[in-house]
Design a protein around this nucleic acid. Structure first.
Lengths: 240, 240, 240, 240
DNA sequence: GGATAATCGAGACGGTACGTCGCGTCTTCAT
DNA sequence: ATGAAGACGCGACGTACCGTCTCGATTATCC
């Protein structure tokens, strides 16, 4: 089929790792604008053409490094338990940013909100809330800065945009989708008319605040968003 | 006091206009990456230091030009009647993109949606809906591309971000806020607990799709978003 | 005989030809700077290491190709009849440059010069003159361009220089030497004190004009050079 | 007329000198292949674009530096007294290469040659001989290496070739021309039929040996060349 | 009215990074 | 065990803008 057997010396996988590692470190240390081809090449101990052989420009490498970085974390969706999102930190020791996704169960800063107490201590809706909280928290860390940078970079490069969209945005969105589906199956929610709109309603505000910075990205916020977004779908036991 | 005495040749006011005009044209013709200091200076027939005297870098000029551009349009909020959002087009003749904000009243592509027929033919909620539709439509034009570019540029420059946030994002957001307040006053909506969250729910999805491009920015979308976002606030006349 | 047992692949002779052919074509089409290892390898359908096995660098291949090219022509020295100097022309058809050495007898542009009329219509001195004319003419063609390129290349590479000197310069110089010796034997010239200086006097001006380009390389020139260079050696029948 | 008053900040003359100085040092230390734009820029403490503003490529800078270098020497033609040919040596102290043009008066290695003794102790023909000796000697030094390199570089670049030809070759050639004219005026030589050919006969052999390296560039050589070249022009006072 | 001084167009300048090309060496795989 | 294919480290190429600087020429206001 599209096998197209590769002739000649194959690309070195170790090299690819070295490059991504260098790019990831640069990204974390200096931000996206520090991820230049020359800096990557110098730090990875690699010729520039070697990098160009695999990626067309610096932001692509940064994106690849970023994706590898975040993929290495949050591996087990659905239970809210997650690892951090900044692996292979060689250069800057980093103060272990208190695993942003640990299951704080909703106790933390649940200011007068009642749903979590009386509701199921577990279940898809709780998981969804934790998922959003974790995402919001991650957005306040370097992960957020880098995510914003990737969205910014996507605006001038449609190829980059596509990769970022499918590998990051949509991938994470699937978690929300499946949790909602579970809630529907469990009878906690009605079937939504337009699931895509619902997902946007849930996620977009987080990205909006990340990018515009006009308000905090805390649990109160995500909980409020979630409540409104699902309100119409929620089966009201009583309420005449 | 602060009178001072400005000795020497005073700054020319006409220059500012020439520069912004050049920047706006470049922005529209070549996108943000075409708005370089050298290009602006060359096109405006101006020395680079003259530009640096007023703005610190090229994106700032681009933002100023962008704001001037969009301010020149949508002048009368609240009634849904708007002018286009792309003024002084000298270079590219452009096919007059059918003023994206004219009051098409919901007739346009209202595929099976019933609310508008039976609802008030006018009033704050309708205006809000039209406002969102207009915004979404504008986002499909060069205005959207430039808005995205400004958000992107804001990520590396907090000063720029602040200006863009206050002069563009929050300014437009006020329209939504006042329409909601009007609806509350008119008894069409309940008082929202967290108006900021509600506004985010309304606007964020538009920006999200603009930036990520994972779905269309059409009326069906904005209407769906609005319905869900306001659902919890809506007084249900009948229900049962 | 030398049958032996050729394990693996014994094909190495045809390769050399393919490589030289490719190099020669590149040399003629694009000049010396077009003769890169990568271009040769690509055109010959050969791996780069295969070329490096026989030559140390690209100019060496170019020189080898050049020598093969010119050796394939001017095979019969001493009689003035020669073939052209640009074989295996695959790519550019070439308009058969009118065999540059046909015996035009000296009539052409013999501005008032009398020696040829009264002198022997044939003999070593005439052959020498024709030899120089032919060389000068060849220098106005691609052969000249390539010769100049080889001299240029020789300046950075002493190994190359040695090969070029012995295989091209000195080889051709022998023709002049033997013609002069013949003339001496025939009693037309006196024995020169320093034959090397005489040979330089005859050949150097041609190379000089080839390389510097400050004057034409025509028959008037070569004839004038020859006359002066040999003047002191010539037996003057009358005079005194 | 062609004044065309230059607007904007004028080029810095000091910078030009710094660049040429750096190029000259590189040329002498590492040869022409060491004269790269990056090396010049680094050594001169200058940005690459600054160099490109004045010269189109590295060999052009090398040529300019070379010309400046040699122009700074041999200032007084006609008397045989000359300065060295390698000025501004900052970096490598250099062991003062025994001024290649000092008036060695013909004493040095005048192996059995009698002309100088009995001939005029001065006069244009003697000056011509000294001029050739000096040139030949210079060709055995770094000046010769660089001259050869410039001729080589000229082969791929006609603009460079033109500058080199007019600023170096032809300029020096004028000295030979005027000396011959002086000799003619003094009745020592007959008027030559083709002065250009005579000049080529005098100079070409030097360049030939410089470039090909097939024989020494000593006084015996230049004297022999000169004798033959001028033999036909010389008035023979006695001669049986 | 002339001096004074800031502004203006123009463009040189030191930098940084770009993306490309060719080198000469090496590794892998198919023959 | 040869040879094509091509990856690799390297170094230089020539270009684009950056933001600062220096010019000469205006163009006001102040003395």
């Amino acid at each position: 089929m599209s096998k197209a057997k590769p002739r000649g010396r194959p690309r070195s996988a170790a090299l690819r790792r070295k490059i991504l590692r260098a790019a990831a470190n640069l990204l974390n240390e200096r931000g996206i604008s520090g991820v230049t081809m020359e800096a990557i090449a110098a730090r990875a101990g690699v010729g520039k053409p070697t990098i160009y052989r695999e990626w067309p420009n610096a932001p692509s490498v940064a994106l690849a490094a970023f994706l590898e970085t975040v993929d290495q974390s949050d591996p087990t969706p659905g239970d809210g338990t997650k690892a951090d999102a900044a692996p292979f930190e060689k250069t800057s020791p980093q103060k272990r940013v208190a695993s942003p996704f640990q299951t704080t169960g909703g106790r933390r800063s649940s200011k007068g909100r009642t749903l979590d107490q009386r509701a199921q201590p577990s279940g898809p809706l709780v998981a969804l809330r934790l998922h959003l909280r974790a995402t919001a928290h991650a957005f306040t860390t370097r992960v957020g800065r880098n995510t914003a940078a990737m969205i910014a970079a996507s605006q001038h490069d449609s190829e980059l945009a596509k990769v970022f969209r499918t590998q990051f945005i949509l991938k994470r969105r699937e978690e929300g989708r499946s949790l909602i589906n579970l809630a529907v199956a469990a009878g906690q929610l009605r079937e939504p008319t337009d699931i895509e709109a619902v997902l946007d309603l849930i996620y977009a505000p987080l990205y909006f605040r990340l990018l515009i910075g006009h308000g905090p990205l805390d649990e109160a916020y995500t909980d409020a968003i979630l409540e409104v977004a699902l309100d119409g779908l929620r089966r009201r036991p009583r309420k005449s």
